[in-house]
């Protein structure tokens, strides 16, 4: 099923995630574009995997590759796109980036050895997907205290600014907590993620909230989001996903 390896000894297997038995290898480019993504069924579950060159994905070379931002972005996106293609068809338990086996037997013995825990994790996800919600708000006004004419005016301006900043912070914190509460109640589960810098979000506005939700009824969740959008014209909301449920699988099998 996979492309014939050029050098059998120099390839390993990259595991993207696990789907229920009978799943097919999604038609998406692999992390190592020389090879195809395939489905490896074993022990009642199916691993989504592809061969990778150990010139790139071995312990000795991987750290160097990972330091290469262009390689990292391409590879991370390939990992994600393979899982998204799988997710379009079935439940997916996503693996963390760079889960690599030296050969197919090792991969199969992992699947066989953990088939119960994997099947349970898949069962728990059922038809649920992860959706992301980010909220942005206008940046806070710049300080004008430096323009004060006297020392006293300056100090007063600074105090006033400090007070406004504290009020603003409290109000933003309340907004974030309210958003999370309302979205969580329309979802099966929810987590708060780190805020992203403007550089990362690619926006001029400041990120005020970043959350991920495990959602069964998407209509209901999207209605909750619509209601927030209508009430809060001061916020810019962004919905992302559906994602594989990265934030809602146990970090280690047999836990959570």
């Amino acid at each position: 099923m996979s492309a014939a390896p050029i050098r059998e000894s120099a390839t390993g297997w990259y595991l993207y995630g696990v789907v229920p038995a009978g799943g097919e290898g999604p038609a998406a480019p692999a992390v190592d574009p020389s090879y195809e993504v395939v489905a490896i069924e074993c022990g009642g579950v199916t691993g989504i995997a592809s061969r990778v060159s150990l010139d790139e994905f071995d312990e000795s070379t991987l750290p160097e590759r990972l330091a290469d931002a262009a390689w990292l972005e391409r590879t991370i996106r390939a990992h994600e796109q393979v899982l998204e293609a799988a997710l379009a068809r079935t439940a997916v338990v996503p693996c963390r980036f760079c889960t690599v086996y030296r050969d197919e037997d090792h991969l199969r013995s992992f699947l066989a050895g953990h088939s119960n825990a994997l099947a349970e994790a898949l069962e728990r996800l059922g038809g649920r997907v992860e959706l992301g919600v980010k909220a942005f708000t206008a940046p806070e006004p710049r300080s004008t205290a430096g323009q004060a004419e006297s020392g006293r005016a300056y100090l007063e301006a600074r105090r006033e600014e400090q007070r406004r900043r504290e009020e603003l912070a409290a109000s933003r914190s309340r907004t974030a907590a309210e958003l999370h509460g309302r979205l969580s109640s329309a979802a099966e589960d929810g987590v708060v993620l780190d805020l992203q810098s403007r550089e990362a979000s690619g926006r001029d506005e400041e990120m005020l909230f970043n959350g991920a939700y495990l959602v069964l009824e998407r209509d209901r969740f999207e209605r909750a989001l619509d209601a927030i959008a209508r009430e809060r014209a001061d916020l810019q909301l962004e919905l992302t996903g559906p994602w594989p449920a990265y934030n809602f699988v146990p970090e280690e099998l047999g836990r959570g």
């Binding site: 071995d58 991370i76 963390r96 760079c98 690599v100 090792h106 992203q196 909301l237 699988v249």
Partner: peptide, 28 residues
């Protein structure tokens, strides 16, 4: 109006693929 329709932001992918998902004892 608030679904970007763009490819996922790198930061959103990074915070998931690098930090989340099950950790399995692979060989590497």
């Amino acid at each position: 109006s608030y679904r970007s329709g763009q490819p996922a932001q790198l930061a959103d992918v990074l915070e998931r693929v690098l930090d989340k998902g099950i950790v399995i004892a692979g060989d590497i």
